[in-house]
Design a binder for these strands. Structure first.
Lengths: 219, 219
DNA sequence: GTCTATAGATTGATAGAC
DNA sequence: GTCTATCAATCTATAGAC
């Protein structure tokens, strides 16, 4: 109890928290649109009307799911990138592309390993990023934008020989690669001739970081 | 008329063709699940019952949309990769990673520039690849698998110092980057601080190919 | 082959008793 | 805050006249 985080730790006691936890899992497993409020409230063991009572609408529930995790995650990423920025300004040499990319990408994978709920959440991010509905995508992009731009700014600083457009697109490619592994699923296995099981986040990260670093540094 | 391709060129005269063309555009613009048969048949100017009469179901229509384009596209990609393979076996040196990646990725971008319909189609691929419903994804992956595996095989040949798992995952990252630009949209503009307009496929390709090549070749 | 009409099911949201 | 009951809208798919 004494070392636990914020307030409610083990079992969520309030309907609101139960709904957030359940929505995180079901939205990531089946998709936001494909998850009906009936399936959600049944799984959560609460009444059908609870979502609209506590959050106002289904979409407001989705936004609440994002806010709960991203506020914390993005604070970590921004802090890491600011540390890199400060070190550079203090004359401790030019930061490496790899350090910047790791600050941008790694915290999401660490979150992924933090528990079943947050694991679902990172999958949800990857799914929402590719949603057809702009308003659904924009809920996430609103949180993404400041972190993306800070990373972009740092990269422009250490890759002055590249056009800004090149840096921008390469960073887009990198986020695409990262998000693809975030929601890795059976379709991966279908392509995987080697038949090897899906590796854990640490293993994927050790392939992903060199990949995006080399891509960013390409001539 | 004499230089036009296959059979029906300018205006599709049959209901079936009109439905394929309209489905391609609406499925890519709004998503497969989000496009109702009502919206589809209204836009196509045909009767609501036409889809089920001609194709049997909505999902069979999606599959027909894929078959019409992918049979041709994948034949081109396989041919290019086989040419690379033959050259290597004839002792004309080891093929470059860049050649292999270009054979795998470029034809899709060429198709994208071939017209409004095929442009929509490449967007549709990228959207379906990230669909929540496995059966929807699998329709595309069934066509993707042989081409992906051939590319994977070639890459293993020229990157013998890498583990097969590394090659596999790097190729997955590359396809993710390619598919991300395929459905580039307003959400890109939202992130793009430089505010530059979305470049054409040739320009994106000239950034994408060096990126994935460097990523594949990373130590 | 094309049309109208509708069956049959599911959805998000709400009103009102408790 | 939680419940039941229900509304109004949507959907895919089909039956049957023309």
């Amino acid at each position: 109890m004494t070392i636990s985080s914020p307030k409610k730790s083990a079992a969520p006691s309030h309907t609101k928290d139960i709904l957030l936890d359940t929505a995180e899992v079901l939205f990531s497993r089946d998709g936001y649109r494909e998850t009906s409020l009936r399936a959600l409230t049944t799984e959560a063991g609460v009444n059908l009307a609870a979502v609209n009572y506590h959050f106002g609408s289904k979409k407001a529930l989705l936004e609440a799911v994002f806010a709960r995790r991203l506020d914390h995650l993005n604070r970590i990423r921004m802090q890491r990138m600011r540390e890199i920025d400060t070190m550079a300004k203090d004359g401790e040499g030019v930061p490496s592309v790899q350090d910047i990319m790791r600050a941008f990408i790694a915290p999401m994978f660490l979150l992924r390993e933090a528990g079943e709920g947050s694991r679902s959440f990172t999958t949800l991010i990857a799914r929402v990023l590719n949603d057809h509905d702009p308003s659904t995508r924009d809920i996430f992009l609103k949180y993404m934008k400041p972190v993306f731009n800070e990373c972009y700014r740092l990269l422009c600083g250490v890759l002055p020989h590249l056009s800004r457009e090149s840096v921008f697109w390469r960073l887009v490619f990198s986020t695409a690669a990262a998000s693809r592994v975030m929601c890795r699923d059976e379709s991966m296995t279908m392509l995987n001739k080697a038949g090897s099981p899906l590796p854990d986040s640490g293993a994927v990260l050790s392939v992903l970081i060199p990949f995006v670093t080399a891509g960013m540094e390409a001539p």
